[in-house]
Design a protein around this nucleic acid. Structure first.
Lengths: 230, 230
DNA sequence: CGCGACCTTGAGCACTGTCAACGCGGGTGG
DNA sequence: CCACCCGCGTTGACAGTGCTCAAGGTCGCG
């Protein structure tokens, strides 16, 4: 964590796609890929020669910890950029959650382009800053004491994300494309704990499932209250 | 969380201070401030007109959650930049932990400078990327199941940080400038839990305290093992 | 329609949160 | 220079929550 200098909103909406000129500059460098679900995009600690940008679908970024647990750092949605590296190697492993289409951009060429195009670089700066804020929200999620509280905050995040991407959606209906196990690894709890707390929230009439990957929020105020428990 | 495009190391060491030319450009804009310990630098949800950079001392960035808990997002050290904003307002509250000297830079002027100086902007991009990685490490810390595991990872982070800043230090001695309560709020546990697990680590001969704010790591391998518990 | 992956539910145990009391130590004022 | 005092840290007891292991149930894809 650490510093966090730029206000995305003041600089234009970072979650929006780039301008047409920027798109053209980038697509000159990029390769478009179609990737089936459950596919590893890259593995941690391998040579990081590319940056990726999602055109459609959902990706998860994770790391297996000593001790056997798997920690999911983030879920990535259309418009998101990924390919975090350190010492020239990827930090996390990334895998598709759904079928995905993505742009693959050579990192060296992108670096040159950014140095020549300060405006485009500023977009990237805002994007990373935005992701830093998201990361801090994730940490708050995980640091919540109860499983129900974590899940409630997670739902709120998915809801915010969904509507910021202006997805075609039923009001108060939230898409949850990942499995219970993925949610568990993201929240730092067991899959059983996820099951138990969703069951309790359903029985309390706060949420309802319409299929395994769609939640409807029935009582937003109460959900907020669950999330706010010490 | 989300995307994470740039490899700090490949682009030059981001944790290092800026080059002399960059420093001169920046200090033209900056005001140097001396701030006593325990001072609020700015409060969350207030107008974000400045970015700050630490010349010396330690700062904490936190947010009080509904429910009464306080979540510390990060500790900031010399060379770190802070002032994260969203919609033109600061996201967190920041307070000095020790006596601090820092640079205060008007955000508008900085934005202009960055657009005119792509090289300097790239430094900032790397810095934010670095902080994103740190934030992910923080999340792993917090998601660890046991208090001892969280504390062990926290210590490792402080150690890495300390030596990356090339602090004058005794080998295996780690400076812990913050209080137990601050550590608790950072790790998402109670202050009592921090006390209990440090006591256990001391009794196990894994660490030793030389004063309240200095730890010596006696058995690094065992500390690693504690951190790796499921 | 059937198989397999995913999800749910249950019982026992370990750990942390909470509340409360005590100990320690540095700073301040007499 | 000394004694007090208050912030900070430690320790103990009890209740609550999640983890683990195990078994049963359900959805969706081939």
């Amino acid at each position: 964590m650490r510093a966090i200098p730029f206000d995305v909103t003041a600089a234009g909406v970072a979650t929006q796609l780039l301008t047409e000129r920027h798109r053209q500059n980038l697509t000159g460098l990029a390769t478009l890929l179609n990737v089936p679900r459950r596919t590893i995009v890259y593995r941690e600690d391998t040579l990081a020669r590319w940056i990726f940008m999602i055109a459609g679908g959902v990706v998860k970024s994770f790391r297996d910890l000593p001790g056997g647990r798997r920690h999911i750092a983030c879920f990535l949605f259309p418009g998101d950029v990924f390919g975090l590296a350190e010492n020239g190697q990827f930090v996390n492993t990334t895998q598709t959650v759904t079928d995905v289409t993505l742009y693959r951009i050579p990192v060296d060429a992108l670096k040159d382009l950014l140095r020549r195009d300060p405006d485009l670089q500023f977009r990237f700066l805002c994007k990373v800053t935005h992701q830093l804020r998201e990361s801090q929200r994730h940490t708050i999620c995980v640091s919540t004491r109860t499983a129900a509280g974590k899940f409630a905050l997670f739902l709120k995040m998915l809801q915010r994300d969904g509507q910021s991407r202006a997805e075609p959606s039923v009001p108060r209906s939230v898409a949850v494309p990942m499995t219970r196990a993925d949610i568990a690894d993201y929240l730092g709890i067991s899959a059983e704990a996820v099951s138990r707390c969703t069951t309790r929230l359903v029985r309390s009439g706060i949420i309802a499932f319409t299929g395994r990957h769609h939640v409807r929020i029935l009582n937003s105020a109460e959900l907020e209250r669950v999330a706010a428990v010490t």
